[in-house]
């Protein structure tokens, strides 16, 4: 039985460590840390004792069945949901009820939504430059320069003066990515970014995300796109019923999953 070279600590521990010789992206510095995070919706517990550390420039892909808490988890990271127990620390700032902390964290964390959520009453360029101009207080020229750069990065600079309603789904999502990037975040969160897209538009968005990963952005991606996970992820996290069930490198995960729950899920989707 061939063991993937990534298996450093043996295959029967819950966690596997990425020992890849190509350890270019791992720098060891923790950007996001979740310790013992619980989240309740009324009596229903959506997150059960989540412990997760994400290192700088790491790409973490979270997969799992619906209702497993994956979206809830990343929404807790930028306070779109409020966690009930445990600690969440982003780039040294602890997430609490302190408005200043929340705002600081939100400035450094960018989010891309499943439903894009572009502002329909503004042009594409205005969507992208709104954050830098209002929050970082940049002047219009600097903001638009950066905005166009970001639009070029996602390969739709020519749409800058159109309105979101005039764009296709794939283009809208790429604008959403550019909007998040324009804030120059340290971390990018993706909440099922391709789930609302027609199949022929998924690849253009995934390409943008892959380019982002290659350029060294720290990313947490909730998705069903297994190809993306295999290709780009440094670590894959499998969640079910509000808990982290298994974590590992893509090789470990897809070729040698340990937990029964993981095997069941993979058998259903692959």
């Amino acid at each position: 039985m061939s063991e993937p070279s990534a298996m450093g600590n043996g295959g029967d521990s819950d966690a596997a460590v990425r020992v890849d010789a190509d350890a270019t992206r791992a720098t060891g510095e923790t950007v996001i840390s979740c310790e013992g995070v619980d989240k309740f919706f009324g009596d229903f517990q959506a997150l059960k004792d989540i412990n997760l550390r994400v290192g700088r420039q790491e790409v973490v892909v979270i997969i799992g069945p619906s209702g497993s808490g994956k979206s809830t988890l990343i929404r807790c990271i930028n306070r779109l949901e409020k966690h009930d127990r445990g600690r969440i620390v982003v780039d040294g700032v602890e997430m609490s009820d302190d408005v200043r902390n929340i705002q600081e964290i939100r400035r450094e964390v960018g989010m891309v939504f499943q439903q894009f959520n572009l502002f329909p009453h503004m042009t594409v360029l205005d969507n992208v430059t709104l954050g830098p101009r209002l929050v970082r207080r940049w002047n219009k020229k600097k903001a638009e320069e950066l905005g166009m750069q970001m639009l070029e990065r996602v390969k739709i600079p020519e749409q800058a003066h159109k309105y979101p309603g005039q764009l296709s789904g794939g283009q809208q999502q790429r604008v959403a990515i550019a909007r998040a990037l324009a804030m120059q975040p340290k971390v990018m969160l993706f909440d099922e970014p391709t789930s609302a897209l027609d199949p022929e538009m998924i690849s253009e968005v995934l390409d943008a995300m892959k380019e982002l990963a290659r350029s060294g952005m720290t990313m947490i991606v909730v998705t069903h796109e297994m190809g993306f996970a295999r290709e780009v992820a440094d670590r894959v996290v499998f969640m079910a019923d509000g808990q982290i069930v298994e974590v590992g490198t893509p090789q470990h995960f897809f070729e040698n999953p340990q937990e029964e729950r993981t095997k069941l899920f993979l058998s259903q989707i692959l």
């Binding site: 939100r106 939504f113 709104l130 929050v135 909007r179 998040a180 804030m183």
Partner: peptide, 11 residues
């Protein structure tokens, strides 16, 4: 989603 997007860019 509009409120969330606005919050996500720290408005």
């Amino acid at each position: 989603g509009q409120t969330e997007a606005a919050n996500a860019i720290a408005l």
